[in-house]
Design a protein around this nucleic acid. Structure first.
Length: 304
RNA sequence: GGUACCAUAGCUCAGUUGGUAGAGCAACGGACUGAAAAUCCGUGUGUCCCUGGUUCAAUUCCAGGUGGUACCA
């Protein structure tokens, strides 16, 4: 019987040191890394997304970094499919693979699966978007109440994105969203070990501030300037770009923009931590902790 | 040195005709199934500069002090 394969997931808030830890583990176990970062896919914005550098990429083979263009539309479901295909291929030659990133929803899609739902119809989405902007959220609420009263009861009714998505699914499938959204964890045929990286908040915030400065001195502003033609793409609805675009528009001074970037990055880190805190499968470590490698080895021994 | 004005939450400020106070931002907490670095929800954390006076009661009125700002010397 074939040995069971293992996916080690290195996760944590932004700037917690995931990239370095993942590379160290990958080198030690002589394996490859799959990114689970919803913004590092885009090849035009490596600086602002703190993607692995050319030097880091040369040390270990990375997947799903810089594989998309800002023009590409992408979503969690496609990510799940891409990663499952990658795992199938790479587990032929590796017993252990590493996935690292900070996008909780994307990580969960790989670890637990995600329901089979249709991709949004762009035209329908545009219609709903306009409806919301012109007539307000009440119209969306009423529409969802008619289409799917059950989901309407549980949904966050002030969140236009949730309302729109549910309406989309109902209209596109002719079925109720609440009936399609099973939310049932799928069994994977590989072991999963989740390693969480975290630091005392004060230290994490100091790292965020320092990294922001480094990213700027690495040419982030120029990167933002050249991404300007794509500013309305979803990929650029991202911490940092919004603020730098505001500076380029003359709405903020550079100093104000940088301060806002730091603040919004901290807030992003907090949202990530809120997501990860719920997941009781995560084993938490400090990024400098030498015991991470040993912990993985012990897991491998215990889960042959 | 003199005069005027100001001093309230981490920041910018509102307010209390005397009954210990509230907005925005920040902060903190939370939600999350194809836009997720997105989107949305909740929470006020306070020697009301200090000391004294008047008063049943002072953050509020009065006096002095301290600090700041402006103008005059």
């Amino acid at each position: 019987m074939a040995k069971k394969k293992t996916l080690v997931v290195v996760l944590g808030p932004t700037a917690s040191g995931k990239t370095d830890v993942a590379i160290r583990l990958a080198k030690y176990f002589d394996t490859e890394i799959i990114s689970a970062d919803s913004r590092q896919f885009y090849r035009e914005i490596p600086i602002g997304t703190a993607a692995p550098t050319a030097q880091q990429l040369s040390k270990v083979t990375h997947h799903l970094v810089g594989n998309l263009s800002l023009n590409d539309d992408y979503n969690v479901s496609r990510f799940e499919q891409d990663v499952m295909a990658l795992l199938k291929e790479k587990f032929r030659v590796h017993d252990l693979l590493i996935m690292t990133g900070g996008s909780g929803l994307y990580i969960d899609a790989v670890c637990k699966g995600i329901d089979s739902l249709p991709d949004p119809d762009p035209l329908l989405r545009k219609t709903l978007q306009e409806k919301w902007q012109q007539q307000g959220i009440e119209v969306l609420q009423q529409q969802l109440q008619q289409l799917d009263a059950e989901y309407y009861e549980q949904v966050d009714r002030k969140n236009h994105k949730r309302l729109m998505r549910a309406i989309e699914v109902c209209l596109q499938t002719g079925q109720k969203y609440s009936e399609l959204r099973l939310n049932k964890p799928q069994k994977r045929d590989f072991n999963i070990l989740k390693i969480g990286l975290d630091l005392p908040r004060e230290q994490l915030f100091a790292r965020i501030n320092r990294r922001t400065e480094i990213m700027l001195s690495n040419g982030w502003l120029e990167e933002a300037r050249s991404a300007l033609p794509f500013r309305h793409k979803n990929a650029l609805n991202t911490v940092g770009y919004k603020e730098l675009f505001a500076y380029l528009d003359g709405e903020l001074t550079l100093e104000e923009a940088v301060d806002k970037i730091k603040t919004n990055t901290r807030r992003y880190a907090k949202r990530q931590l809120t997501w990860f805190k719920k997941d009781k499968e995560i084993h938490w470590f400090s990024p400098e902790d030498e015991e991470i490698r040993q912990f993985v080895e012990e897991f491998l021994v215990g889960n042959p």
